[in-house]
Structure formats: structure tokens, C-alpha cells
């Protein structure tokens, strides 16, 4: 779900960078409002590295396999550190693997990062009403994971289809292309939601402190 270099017009790439700069500035401002902002940096950095590595785990979806994105979990665990973390992760992926690109780094950060912040707020809702339980954490984990990837897919498909340097044969073909791309990603919603839910329950059992955020 990374848009490579060379596909989008420069205006969209520039818009992506502008949006990313604004969200990064806001995230850093929020981080600096913490009592000791430096304390969270090693945790956020190592979890960024860990998420980068965990995304190499492939899930079998016969006849192929998909790799995890986990931007929902990243948002749930890192809060406002999630956006800079995703930006750094995307930069490394572009430089080391050629996934995504340098001109599209901003737009890819918007695709992955904004839903991560949304997931952070969704996951925080679990603290409203009633007492904590693994089932409740798991359910909100599923919601955070599935919604984050769903919103990412929607932004990705929308940007890609509306900005290709050519027009489709007809409006029907364009609609069919959008639906095909969106439907192809549907299993990912279930898988990301389930994995996020299982991970949240695992972390709650093994190291509940992680769920309190960085």
C-alpha cells in the first residue's frame, strides 16, 4: 500500500509533504507537552524498529501471502509518537527496499499515519465506562486495527485512482477499478483487526505497561 515514485503529479506529492509537515509539527508539539518528552524517545524508537521488523512477518492468504501493516496497533501503543514513527519507518523502507518512494514519502505518511492517530483515539475509548477486561481490550484492538487499515485503504485507492496520469475508458471502468482495488484489500481488514486484537490481549497478559502508551 505504498505509492511508488513516478506515479503521482508533483502537486499531490507537495500536498502530501505539506500535510505531513503539519501533522509532524503538531505531533512533536504534543510530545513536547509531556512532563519528560525525552523519556519516551527510546521507547518510541525501539518500538518503531520492532514494528518495522514485525511488518516482515508474512501471513498466508492462499494462493499468496500478505505482510502486516499494523498502523492501528502502532497508533494505539505510541499515540502521538506514531506519526513520526511511521514517517521514519516509511523513509527506511523507501531507502532500504525501494518500497514507496522519496517524492511520495509525504503522501504515504498521510495514508498510514493519519489512520494511526485515529486508532489511538479509538483504542482510548476502551477506558470509558465499565471495568477493564481482556475481551474489551481485544474488541477495541480489533476496531483500532481494522478501522486504521480500512481508512488507509480508502485514502490509498482514492489518491491512486484520481491521480493516475491518464483517464479511464469510462466512468464504469473507473468505478470497477476502485471497487476491485478496495475489495482486494478487504481480507487485510479482517487479518489486521484480528492480529491487532490478539496482540493487544497478549501484551495485556505479558506486559500491560506497554498498553498505557509511551
Amino acid at each position: 500500500m505504498h505509492i511508488p515514485d513516478g506515479i503521482l503529479p508533483i502537486s499531490v506529492n507537495a500536498g502530501g509533504y505539506a500535510a505531513t509537515a503539519a501533522v509532524t509539527w503538531y505531533s512533536i508539539r504534543k510530545i513536547k507537552q509531556k512532563e519528560n518528552p525525552r523519556e519516551g524517545i527510546p521507547k518510541a524508537s525501539l518500538l518503531t524498529a520492532a514494528f518495522f521488523v514485525v511488518s516482515w512477518i508474512h501471513i498466508p492468504v492462499p494462493p499468496t501471502s500478505v505482510h502486516l501493516v499494523l498502523n492501528g496497533l502502532l497508533g494505539a501503543l505510541l499515540g502521538y509518537y506514531a506519526f513520526p514513527a511511521i514517517l521514519i519507518g516509511l523513509f527506511f523502507q523507501a531507502v532500504m527496499f525501494g518500497h514507496g518512494g522519496l517524492t511520495t514519502l509525504g503522501i504515504n505518511a498521510v495514508i498510514m499515519g493519519l489512520p494511526a492517530i485515529l486508532a489511538y483515539y479509538i483504542f482510548r475509548l476502551r477506558k470509558l465506562g465499565g471495568k477493564d477486561s481482556p475481551k474489551k481490550d481485544g474488541a477495541f484492538g480489533f476496531l483500532a486495527g481494522a478501522v486504521a487499515i480500512g481508512v488507509s485503504v480508502a485514502i490509498f485507492v482514492g489518491i491512486l485512482v484520481t491521480n493516475l496520469p491518464t483517464d479511464f475508458i469510462s466512468a464504469e471502468v473507473e468505478r470497477a477499478a476502485i471497487y476491485t482495488l478496495a475489495i482486494a484489500h478487504l481480507p487485510l481488514l479482517g487479518i489486521e483487526g484480528t492480529i491487532t486484537s490478539l496482540l493487544v490481549v497478549f501484551l495485556r497478559r505479558v506486559r500491560p505497561g506497554i498498553l498505557d502508551g509511551v
Binding site: P42, A50, V54, I59, V61, L198, R207
Partner: peptide, 28 residues
């Protein structure tokens, strides 16, 4: 991990979770 199953997903989630827990402890 040849086919998609809840057992397989749970095992892979625990693998990812272990990586996250180790990293979190190392960060301290």
C-alpha cells in the same frame, strides 16, 4: 504457516508480541 487459520494467526501474533515486549524492555 501454510494456510490461514485462527491458530496460525494467534501464533504469529504472539511472535510479533514477543518482539514488541523484548524491544520495550530493551528500550528501558
Amino acid at each position: 504457516k501454510r494456510r490461514l487459520s485462527l491458530y496460525g494467526l494467534r501464533t504469529l501474533a504472539w511472535l510479533g508480541g514477543s518482539i514488541l515486549v523484548h524491544s520495550y524492555e530493551r528500550s528501558e
